[in-house]
């Protein structure tokens, strides 16, 4: 009887251990996680408009056929990164992710007063602007995003208000930029 109970307990503990190892290790072992896919799609600090999802191709899994996407894979190694895009509608959504897929910040078009947004992504507590640089004149037009990671990705999602809006939405996304931020110096203005 004792042997049977010991056997059942061993089975339960060993199963639970294997279960935990599998769950905790999978995010590191998944070969096609979102970060691997994004890294294959875009160079650092460059805006890439993803092709519209169609039956033959989806850049990322389960893309919406009626949403247009652009991504900026940012790398803050050399300082802050500036993301600039037109916002055609309050439904547009810009989300920021760590490589592990944590959505650490999001902003929607409806929160903005303008149809153009300038975002500066910087390391948390390390704004990184050079001495003498000033944002004072620009601050009204800027959204500052503190990133908890050196590398990550920003995704712009633009829902279509109808099929006829596709080309103007894609054109607006194509005008967006993502690049290293060069702060204007006080003397340079």
């Amino acid at each position: 009887m004792r042997k049977i109970i010991a056997g059942i307990l061993s089975l339960v503990f060993l199963s639970a251990f294997i279960h935990l190892i599998a769950v905790l290790s999978l995010p590191h072992l998944a070969p096609k996680n979102a970060w691997a896919r994004v890294s294959a799609l875009a160079d650092s600090n460059r805006m890439v408009v993803l092709p519209a999802a169609n039956p033959a191709h989806q850049s990322l899994p389960l893309m919406a056929p009626d949403v247009r996407y652009a991504i900026c894979r940012f790398n803050l190694e050399s300082g802050p990164v500036r993301l600039s895009t037109q916002i055609l509608d309050g439904l547009w959504l810009i989300t920021f992710y760590t490589p592990s897929g944590e959505n650490f910040y999001a902003i929607t078009g409806s929160e903005l007063k303008r149809n153009q947004i300038e975002i500066i992504i910087s390391r948390k507590d390390r704004l990184g602007f050079k001495a003498g640089a000033s944002l004072l004149d620009e601050i009204e037009d800027l959204v500052l995003v503190d990133s908890p990671v050196k590398e990550g990705v920003a995704v712009i999602r633009a829902p279509l208000l109808g099929r006829s809006y596709a080309s103007q939405t894609e054109a607006a996304l194509n005008r967006g930029t993502c690049s290293n931020h060069v702060a204007k110096t006080a003397s340079g203005r």
Binding site: P27, A34, S100
Partner: peptide, 22 residues
């Protein structure tokens, strides 16, 4: 997509290759 997501959700999203919205 949440910072305090549980390990199962993190594993699910990693396997799916998706970037979930909070």
């Amino acid at each position: 997509g949440k910072p305090d997501a549980d390990p199962y959700t993190i594993a699910h999203m990693a396997r799916a290759g998706r970037l979930p919205i909070n």
